[in-house]
């Protein structure tokens, strides 16, 4: 409950910080909405030249796109930048030490200190509009069970990404590579926008089984489309469980070995 209240306060701070420059704030919101719109234009262009993409038609892709942006909205609003960009910066300038002196979990502070108000406003609005379009056009008519499983799998996708980022972020206690790793992750995660089946050969093995970003979004989308691929779902659950266990252990290990950067 205490952390929930704290989270609400951090959201408020996020808004205050972001709206300090109103023109840029509103421009960023337009940019975020455009980004989703142009992704759909991209798929429209693809489907102008083919009726099916690795077994997925345009309606299926709409569901996949909505699922991707739903998961992405949660990630980029909350912990993505905190772990990938702000943590290395804090380690560099020594301000991470303040996190250790407060009676709040350092992991909580590290992950949620800056909540992205641009994305709360823009991404959530765009995602809601996308889902509204999908349901109003009856592109899918899922049962409550399917919606429930979709939500659980989407939460697992968020935990998967959080764990992956936590491992990368923990490494910055030694490397302090700042923004590069974050940018690389953004590019890799973009693979989740597409059906996992488009990847062939070694790319398929890498993106579906070694770092299964090709599965994290397509598995929940599959469920909404009425396809329960149990092998994918169970693999994702087991993989995420192992990954999150490893991530927390690694974070604690990194924290124990942290020596302050400031004097």
């Amino acid at each position: 409950m205490r952390y929930f209240r704290l989270f609400k306060t951090l959201i408020k701070f996020g808004f205050i910080r972001a709206t300090a420059y109103p023109p840029s704030f509103f421009a960023a919101i337009i940019g975020k909405v455009l980004r989703i719109g142009l992704t759909l234009v991209f798929f429209q262009a693809i489907y102008l030249h083919t009726s099916i993409l690795a077994g997925w038609n345009y309606s299926d892709i709409l569901v996949l796109t909505a699922s991707y942006f739903t998961v992405e909205a949660v990630i980029i609003t909350t912990f993505h930048r905190n772990l990938m960009f702000w943590l290395p910066a804090r380690l560099q300038d020594g301000s991470f030490d303040f996190f250790l002196t407060k009676p709040i979990s350092p992991l909580f502070q590290t992950s949620f200190k800056i909540i992205d108000a641009f994305d709360i406003t823009a991404s959530s609005t765009s995602v809601i509009l996308l889902w509204w379009y999908i349901f109003s056009k009856q592109i899918i008519t899922p049962s409550f069970l399917e919606i429930g499983v979709f939500l659980i799998l989407s939460a697992i996708a968020v935990i998967f990404v959080f764990s992956l980022l936590l491992i990368i972020a923990s490494a910055s206690f030694w490397t302090i590579t700042a923004t590069g790793t974050g940018r690389l992750f953004e590019s890799v995660f973009r693979a989740a926008r597409f059906p996992g089946d488009i990847f062939k050969g070694p790319a398929r093995i890498a993106l579906l089984y070694i770092v299964p970003v090709g599965l994290v979004v397509s598995a929940p989308a599959d469920v909404l489309l009425g396809k329960f691929v149990w092998s994918h779902i169970s693999f994702l659950i087991i993989f995420t469980a192992i990954l999150s266990f490893t991530a927390f252990r690694f974070w604690n290990y990194a924290l124990r070995h942290y020596s302050s950067a400031s004097s």
């Binding site: 923004t179 790793t181 590019s187």
Partner: peptide, 11 residues
């Protein structure tokens, strides 16, 4: 940093 961003672009 630049190298990792380049790798991201290639990806």
């Amino acid at each position: 940093n630049f190298f990792l961003e380049v790798i991201g672009g290639i990806f």
